[in-house]
Design a protein around this nucleic acid. Structure first.
Lengths: 213, 213
DNA sequence: TGTACATCAGTGAACGCGCGTTCACTGATGTAC
DNA sequence: TGTACATCAGTGAACGCGCGTTCACTGATGTAC
């Protein structure tokens, strides 16, 4: 309510934020379509509907735009998941299969985004300072998803036994199988294999709650 | 013997193959260092010690060079593994841990290669015809490694129960954990987690041989 | 074995384009009074 | 509420560079006789 009032009583005047956002959005599209290396300032501006000068008024380089876009999308996606968890209805699950099913459903699927992510990962492999960014993203993802997993597992009387192993394992399997899902002809089969793999892992690093406490 | 005779009685005259190879080798280095998008014909030629004309005399585009290099390295790596297996001494293993250890040791580790692979994967996500190439590589890798795995497992009285699931799972875990190994500060820990993950998978998709036959 | 000619394979100059980057300029928006 | 001025935010022309691509040329290698 308060927010919407602020929005209406303060109609768009200073356009900077909007311009920035349009450039950021255009960047995702252009990068996903052409790849980072084949994208130019011109391409992004054309897509966003600006001239090149507008770009330089908002960013210093494509590199900076790329990084900004990536960080914005990353944090936004996690924020979405957390909002879904805290405010929404708590899901009810009855089996390990349902646990995995729900977690996978929560992870958003966006071809463009994962295309860009793959490129970003490749980029980070050549850029030490970006490695930290990637590592930070992994930590953030786990920080959001592991509590959800705990909560779901608790419903069926299970608890994670080895957090330090399961976390990175899930991320690795997520990344590895995602590529397969995007590349293979039979995406359906790939998704099924993916879910099964998650199940195997969760099952292995999990035990009935009584045995722990 | 015969080969070496041929080589010595036929000293280098026609230089084309050598030139091609030097360009292919330079391509790997340049791509690994700069990324595909930031590499130019000029860069590759400079690295190889040729002028740009030499490039156009051997390839039609960077894209073609990239693909040639990738396919050459891919097939070479598998050929190396197979040579090691067929001619070399058969390894003796006594536990599942040793099986995984040996398989992982056989897979070559080359930072530059995996940097390029990550980029190639990202590239393939935008290029349908390359998806086939990636899928073919997965098949080829499994075609080489699964027999090895079978052989090693047999030594400890185990056999794979679900080939269709284990194969892609191994590839996914390989790719996913490799990125972690290359990106994380503590590569040692990442490698250990990696091996454990392989062990968990192999263990899950394996059973004592008697139960099968 | 030597000579003449043909082909191979790479050189390096030249051309032009795409695009990064800058910057004077301008219309829109905000502020002071 | 209106006017004058300041600042914001993007325009679009201009400049120059890197580099893709071509091509006439040349020295090296192979062939015929």
């Amino acid at each position: 309510m308060v927010l919407s009032m602020v929005e209406t009583t303060k109609p768009v005047k200073r356009r900077r934020p909007q311009t920035r956002q349009r450039l950021l959005d255009a960047a995702l599209e252009v990068y996903a379509e052409r790849g980072f290396g084949n994208s130019s300032v011109e391409h992004v501006c054309e897509r966003a509907g600006f001239t090149r000068g507008a770009f330089y008024s908002n960013f210093t380089s494509l590199e900076e735009l790329f990084l900004s876009m990536w960080e914005q999308r990353s944090t936004q996606m996690l924020a979405d998941v957390e909002a879904l968890l805290s405010s929404g209805e708590q899901p009810r699950v009855r089996s390990l299969g349902e646990v995995v099913e729900f977690v996978l459903a929560v992870v958003p699927v966006d071809d463009r985004w994962y295309r860009v992510s793959a490129e970003f990962t490749a980029h980070a492999l050549r850029n030490p300072s970006l490695k930290r960014v990637i590592a930070g993203r992994e930590t953030a993802i786990l920080g959001t998803l592991m509590p959800l997993l705990d909560q779901l597992l608790a419903q069926i009387g299970l608890a994670v036994t080895d957090r330090a192993a399961l976390g990175p394992a899930l991320v690795a399997v997520h990344d590895g199988t995602l590529v397969q899902c995007l590349i293979e002809d039979d995406a359906e089969a790939a998704h099924i294999r993916r879910a099964e793999l998650f199940r195997v892992l969760v099952e292995h690093y999990t035990a009935p709650k009584k045995d722990l406490v």
